[in-house]
Design a protein around this nucleic acid. Structure first.
Lengths: 213, 213
DNA sequence: TGTGAGCATACTACTCGGTATGTTGTCAAC
DNA sequence: GTTGACAACATACCGAGTAGTATGCTCACA
């Protein structure tokens, strides 16, 4: 699997990114609690010392992966909200870029998913409550980007869902689903990704009751 | 939360069921590896001895919860495949009963989800490989029930999805989604459940390109 | 009265998060 | 060019938690 994070220019901050990449893959494969710090270190060919030099704890490392994943999502999707197009068209573009994130930065997005689950269960220590809340706020803000377009598109008569909260939950679960089952094909990588993205987005928008054409 | 497993008739096999129920709720809340056998025992107000008397290992306990969850799904869905109705109508009824399982036996179904993930990552010991394979086969058989109707409904011109495998993955992720976000309301329980089920099923079928009416 | 199911108790071996400390290379200042 | 200082690790170690086991206890029932 080629590195999902640019790794040219071997400089200071780069070591930290390399750790985040390995942590994302480890957490993706075994989940948070089944992944040991030594697992991540072994994947990097180093020892715990290096990891604890950059991150205060296992939870901090996990949170950093979560944060980076969310940042990549915002960077991909937020600009689209400022274009002038119909809410339905904006929603389609946002969904496409979101799903593209799911397949191109899958490890990080799988961690984001587990992070959301952990936040829902409130399984983190109170000493990290503020960081915890910031992540939750970030997640909510991101979700709100989509909710706004969904609401407007329904008002425009382009969508026909019932309850906004339920629709949002199902839509995100649907759009996020590639993090569970997508496996990149070696050949025709870009074409393969585009085909999957198109199908998932179509499923999601049709699920929201989109009137085609 | 009222017991999801019938608990009248306090007799021999019942102790085992009570353990399975507690295990399902524990695994649901913290996941497999973050749940200790002592956690389950504490929830039951007993000690490990009782659990290890009925189950050989933590993995065995997890597998038993998984198996029971799948059995409940089969019991709810498989009879519908034998009725004579259009493939699209059968698929709708199957989806409704499937989602009903997700909300009424949520703990078990959340464990089934994690079990599928663990199977995909192949994270179990080789000594339990046969049990592992049986669970996987069970899961595949269940999925095939839906795939068959999806295929027929597409041939009938009632559905319009592209790739069957992708469509199946997204559909199941969508139909299963209540295990992550559904929280039962105390009042109007049945009405609340029915409303959620209807919305999720509609999302899923529309996602598959169902022609309404 | 003994026999085994159905547990509880006590204990072991081991993993893993976290810390304390040692080592090395780099770089700046004199 | 020597030295101090600090970043960036590696090594060694500790303590808590936990899966699994070995054994003890009790009560129903034959």
């Amino acid at each position: 699997m080629a590195s999902q994070v640019s790794s040219e220019n071997w400089m200071p901050e780069n070591s930290r990114l390399e750790i985040l990449q390995a942590a994302a893959e480890s957490f993706e494969q075994r989940g948070f609690s089944a992944t040991s710090i030594d697992d991540v270190a072994r994947m990097l060919g180093c020892t715990k010392g290096r990891i604890y030099h950059h991150f205060g704890s296992k939870a901090d490392l996990f949170a950093a992966v979560f944060r980076l994943g969310m940042e990549m999502n915002f960077a991909a999707v937020e600009p689209l909200t400022h274009t002038d197009a119909s809410a339905a068209d904006k929603l389609r573009m946002m969904a496409e870029e979101h799903v593209r994130q799911m397949v191109t930065t899958k490890s990080f997005q799988r961690v984001v998913w587990e992070g959301v689950e952990l936040l829902m269960r409130g399984a983190l220590t109170p000493e990290q409550r503020d960081e915890c809340l910031r992540l939750q706020q970030s997640r909510k803000r991101y979700s709100a980007l989509f909710r706004a377009q969904m609401k407007q598109a329904k008002a425009d008569g382009a969508l026909h869902y019932d309850d906004l909260s339920v629709a949002t939950q199902v839509l995100f679960t649907c759009l996020n689903s590639p993090v569970f089952w997508y496996r990149p094909r070696i050949a025709d990588l870009r074409k393969d990704q585009d085909a999957v993205i198109e199908q998932v987005v179509r499923f999601g928008l049709n699920g929201l009751g989109l009137k085609e054409g």
